[in-house]
Simulated assay, not measured.
Amino acid sequence: MRNLIEQSQLIYFIAASAALTILPGPDILFVLTQSISHGKTAGIATASGLCTGVLVHTTAAALGISALVYKSALAFEIVKYAGAAYLLYLAWQALKESEELISSAPARETNAFALYKRGIFMNVLNPKVALFFLAFLPQFANIGSGNVPMQIIFLGTIFMAQAWLIFSAISVFAGTIGNKITQKPGIGKYINWGKAGIFTIIGFKLAQSHK
């Protein structure tokens, strides 16, 4: 793979990927809310789920599946509304969470696997992410070297790795802040309301998105 993609091109790709990962967006907001409300381990679990979703989109882009979704208005709409419905479900779940403060670290960091699955579903059910990788990854592939699908998968793996590192660092930082915030009496319900509000906004934005 080293012979297919030049080193300077790979460095530029990593720099561009890191910049895009840090920019405010649904994924980073999702990681922040889970880290603050459930702790750093939950944030890292969520980040791991989101990054697993990156592999799904990368493979889809390499195999041309994302292009088919883009060309099919019905497929795009189905995935889009499924993702929006899932986010609204998460908003409802956030409102259902106990209003009592969860202050102990072991209790806050349970359900990591459930949060991991949430991250996967949120990422996979966003057709905008699929189209992003379909447009972004091929720009850094060396067409003349051949084996473009393998190059795209390789680039997607690099993107996933740097995103996981950045999201994990954010999870540790946000989890530390969350530990301090959740010590304040009565703050638990406001955190849940905030999570519900963020999920609702992201869900409606996704539902209103276009190709």
Rank of each mutant, 00 (worst) to 15 (best):
T157R: 06
L88Q: 07
A19S: 04
N111L: 08
T21I: 01
T52Q: 02
G53L: 00
T200L: 14
I153D: 04
A42I: 15
L125F: 10
I170P: 08
K189I: 15
T41V: 10
A105T: 11
L55R: 05
A141W: 00
N142G: 07
S98G: 13
Y70W: 06
G49A: 09
L165C: 03
L165M: 02
K71L: 00
Q7F: 06
Q208L: 05
T176W: 06
V69I: 05
A85C: 02
Y81K: 04
L20Y: 05
N3D: 14
A196F: 11
P127V: 07
W92T: 15
T58H: 07
H38M: 15
G156I: 08
G188W: 03
S72V: 00
F133W: 02
P127E: 00
A196G: 15
T52I: 07
Q93N: 10
I22C: 01
K205Q: 14
A15N: 14
I153T: 10
F199S: 15
L155F: 01
M160L: 07
K189M: 10
I120E: 05
A207G: 01
F133C: 04
P24C: 08
L88N: 15
S35H: 14
I5A: 09
L155K: 04
I170C: 11
S98C: 10
H38S: 14
L137D: 01
N179Q: 01
L74G: 01
Y190G: 00
K40L: 08
N111H: 13
M122W: 07
A135M: 09
A163W: 08
L134T: 06
V129F: 06
I177D: 11
A60R: 01
Q208N: 10
F159T: 13
A84F: 08
F173Y: 12
Q34R: 15
S98I: 11
Q139S: 10
F173A: 11
T110E: 03
S209T: 01
T59L: 11
G119S: 11
E100H: 15
C51Q: 04
A15T: 09
K189V: 15
A15M: 08
L115C: 15
L50D: 11
Q7K: 14
V129Q: 06
L115N: 12
S66Q: 11
H38N: 12
S8E: 08
L4Q: 08
A47D: 10
I152N: 04
L68F: 01
V56L: 11
V79E: 02
A94N: 15
Q183E: 00
P185L: 00
H57I: 00
M122Q: 12
A135K: 12
A75L: 05
Y89G: 15
A207W: 02
A15L: 04
A105P: 02
A174D: 11
H210M: 03
A163L: 03
L4A: 08
S37H: 13
